[in-house]
């Protein structure tokens, strides 16, 4: 095959992929005028759903970052037996369907679940609450952050940490003062991916947290609830979600361009080489 024909073939594949991926998103905006988009913000159901989505997603992200960062650091900097199996277990939610996540959360934290009696006697009921939404979001989104975090810390130049220790810094200090600052942009990219996944979560939330305005009805659930009897409202809320998610993705791309490091654009050897999945 000539080079030109091959290039044409590649271009055809790209065109097909682009058309397929972009058309549904464009179609949403074709059907929603900017006026409708703005007036959808005035719809109390949509506004409650958006605010709840943002609140739950931010809380979930804070939990993921606070717990996930040190956990990822441990996994990236120590080698021990069963490390690969442990990482695989942490990454498992990445490939689980949301329905399985929902059933799993109920089986673990529901009143009839593994921890049901313990939680009951402590007076805690999780299902059908805002807390349940946050747990569902953490479950589906944290592997994205952990994965990126392990990659980020594993890619640190070991001589940096060594120099820090030689200069008398404790490991904790090295973590705080050297590892964290160097890995920040890469961790940030992981946090944004986790945020995006959490913002779009649907199935596990519906099964574990239910759907109630102001309590557990996040934006994707509100879209689903109005899909049948108010398609225009569902479209407007979808457009809103596309804009928020698109802005997030754009912000990461901009930030990584500004840093000079491009973790999500190019296979930068510094961040990409030691893929945790293959460790």
């Amino acid at each position: 095959m000539s080079r030109r024909a091959f290039t044409a073939l590649l271009a055809a594949a790209l065109a097909l992929a682009l058309a397929f991926l972009v058309l549904p998103v464009v179609a949403i905006f074709v059907n929603v005028s900017p006026g409708e988009l703005i007036s959808s913000l005035g719809d109390p159901v949509a506004r409650d759903a958006l605010l709840l989505s943002l609140r739950c997603t931010l809380i979930a992200l804070a939990l993921i970052v606070v717990i996930g960062t040190p956990a990822a650091y441990l996994l990236a900097t120590r080698s021990f037996r069963g490390r690969a199996a442990l990482i695989t277990a942490l990454e498992l939610p990445l490939v689980l369907p949301p329905a399985v996540a929902g059933i799993g959360l109920l089986a673990a934290f529901g009143p009839r679940g593994v921890l049901g009696d313990t939680l009951n006697s402590a007076g805690i009921t999780l299902p059908l609450s805002t807390t349940a939404v946050i747990l569902a979001l953490c479950f589906v989104a944290s592997p994205f952050y952990l994965r990126q975090g392990i990659a980020a810390f594993a890619a640190l130049d070991p001589s940096l940490a060594e120099a820090s220790r030689t200069l008398g810094a404790s490991e904790a200090r090295t973590f705080m003062r050297v590892a964290l600052p160097v890995a920040t942009s890469s961790l940030g990219a992981g946090a944004v991916v986790a945020f995006g996944r959490a913002l779009g979560e649907f199935g596990a939330t519906l099964m574990f947290a239910g759907s109630l305005r102001g309590v557990s009805q996040t934006l994707p659930l509100a879209i689903y609830a109005s899909f049948a009897d108010d398609f225009p409202a569902a479209l407007a809320m979808s457009a809103l979600l596309v804009i928020v998610s698109g802005a997030l993705l754009g912000a990461v791309k901009l930030a990584s361009l500004r840093d000079g490091s491009t973790p999500s654009d190019a296979p930068d050897p510094r961040t990409q080489a030691p893929l945790p999945a293959r460790a």
Partner: peptide, 18 residues
Amino acid sequence: RSEEPDVKSVVAKVTTGA
């Protein structure tokens, strides 16, 4: 506490004790 998308989903909330 929850407004479900269909009747099966309502039953599931009760059978799981949620």
